[in-house]
Amino acid sequence: MVTLYVDDLAVSVEKGSTILDAARKLGIYIPTLCYHPDLTTFGGCRVCMVEANGKLVTACRAPVEEGMVVRTDSSAARQVQRTVVELTLSNHNGDCLTCVKDSRCKLQEVANYVGITPERMAMLRSAVPEVEVDESNPFFKLDRTRCILCGICVRTCQEINGVAAIDFGFRGHKTTVVTIGNKGLAESRCESCGECLERCPTGALARKDYEQPSREVKSVCPYCGVGCGIYLGVRGDRVVSVRGDKDSPVNSGQLCVKGRFGYHFINHPDRLTAPLIKRDGVFVEASWDEALDLVAARFLETAKHYGPDALAGISSARCTTEENYLFQKLLRFLGTNNIDHCARL
């Protein structure tokens, strides 16, 4: 263990920890933008600069040393923190009310912490880039006027997903997040998993159809047999969002494109809510009893005429294990082993 002093408070942390780890253990806030606990540290945003033994260092990268004296609030550290935030804001589309991340935005949090005044901001010249929003992806958009180039999405795509569909492109003030060949996201290797937008600190990468849920319900994703833990966001009786459950041992919060974005069928008007029976070539709504009687009668009839192996059943990956168990029981009761599963097709 290493003991150090952060803003006069002593703290002991494991060797190899960073100053940020130590400060957080003490409950001392150090602003960060490009830091994300799931990812390798980058150190590019420069907002976590603190003074350690009299030298300015980035708290997210600098390792602790025995007896180190850290000041998160020295005037030199504050000056850099504030300048970095002011500069970031000068370069950022600050129309917060139309931004889906409003009130959940890391940049707002950090700006509030370092203290931004209208007088100071009025001294700066606006440098918001004039670029089109990339709307090509059906589920989310990339609005580069809100991007702060923290690189969290880039690292997420490389380190979490292993796809590396995006990276930094161009140089200097033209630096931006690009796909290979600078094409739209839809034309890139992007698999639309949406992991990046979950971590994007601002509204640069955000869902297209975001609605703030009024409450959340813990559930399991029904799409496949993996069983990722999810939270369904609900408004009244409508499901309006899905997010991964970080505490789920199955997926640690990660989701695939279907799990994250494919929930609209739940409230879809075309969704089947009652059985249909074809009568005179047309599907007509029926009661469950009617429908089940019909199916049972036809099954028995077919088995009688052609033998039970004329029957077969295909079950769905979206059924639970228990449901699949019951399904194979049913078919064996009917006298056949012809059972298969859509995941095998």
Binding site: F42, G43, G44, C45, R46, V47, V80, T83, V84, L87, T88, S90, N91, L124, R125, A127, I148, L149, G151, F168, F170, R171, G172, H173, K174, T175
Partner: peptide, 18 residues
């Protein structure tokens, strides 16, 4: 410098522009 900065850190990328 504005054109030649690698663009990864805020003070250099945005500061030179400002």
């Amino acid at each position: 410098t504005l054109e030649e900065s690698c663009g990864q850190c805020t003070p250099c990328r945005v500061g030179t522009e400002q």
